[in-house]
């Protein structure tokens, strides 16, 4: 059974300036005179602040908030990439995170080689990924382009390929940072169909978006984030209303 449980999860990301990252200044700080009372070399960004949250199968969570409110970082906690610096995050179930779908694709390698390279990261074996090449060639409408290096692709073609590979596996938990707009009108409709299919099959969905219509269509619960904190939790209608009244 898929579930996500955050308990007082906080993500504090230290930002080291050039001096903070250097080994020398760390040595000098110890052999030098008095220590600075506050450490000015490190700026700490609290991207997610003390969030307690639990998601169970059937939950379709909308993440709402301004840029920099912590939506993406929260999604990265859900994916397991960020383990909270304090507090805990327990994630059970397989995760499909479509946050950066072009992750790991290599411009020098051909489309087909990239299907395999990307495929192993979405949980396919090399053989499975190879067998999927014809299917992906057809679905993405890239056909013979798959024999060419990725650097020859237009950005639209690249996205089509990345999207096609990233969505071949259905997982328990689906994470989305904005709905991915892929390609021209015909293709976008096809892509939308595919992602809706993925959403239907996923136990848990978390979707960050600024488009309230999309959130209302796909989600049944919403949280409003501000400066890394959950400031409201409730129905999508209530939360989107609260968000737009704040923005106004």
């Amino acid at each position: 059974m898929a579930s996500i449980t955050l308990t007082n999860a906080t993500v504090e990301i230290p930002i080291y300036n050039a001096r903070g990252r250097s080994f020398r200044s760390n040595i000098l700080r110890h052999v030098g005179g008095r220590l600075e009372p506050d450490n000015r070399d490190v700026v700490i960004v609290r991207a997610v602040n003390d969030i307690t949250l639990s998601l169970k199968p059937g939950d379709r969570l909308a993440l709402i908030g301004h840029n920099g409110a912590g939506k993406s970082t929260l999604l990265r906690i859900f994916s397991g990439a960020y383990e909270p610096s304090t507090g805990t995050a327990e994630i059970s179930g397989t995760v499909s995170s479509l946050l950066e779908i072009t992750m790991g694709m290599d411009p020098e390698l051909t489309g087909a080689e990239n299907i395999v390279l990307r495929g192993v990261f979405v949980g396919l074996s090399i053989d499975e990924a190879r067998r999927l090449i014809p299917e992906i060639a057809e679905w993405s409408e890239l056909g013979e382009y798959l024999a060419l290096p990725l650097r020859t692709y237009s950005s639209g073609m690249l996205l089509r390929l990345a999207f096609a590979v990233s969505t071949v596996r259905h997982r328990d938990i689906l994470l989305l940072d904005e709905l991915i707009g892929v390609g021209d009108m015909n293709f976008a409709a096809k892509a939308r169909q595919r992602i809706e299919d993925m959403m239907d099959r996923a136990d848990i969905l978390a979707l960050a978006s600024h488009d309230t219509n999309i959130l209302k269509q796909y989600c049944n619960r919403a949280i409003l984030l501000r400066q890394g904190c959950v400031v409201a939790d409730g129905s999508v209608d209530d939360i989107t209303r609260e968000y737009s009244s704040q923005s106004a």
Binding site: S79, G80, A81, I91, L99, E100, M103, G104, F121
Partner: peptide, 9 residues
Amino acid sequence: GMYLRQDAL
């Protein structure tokens, strides 16, 4: 970096 920031690999 790009892998580690996105997935729990």
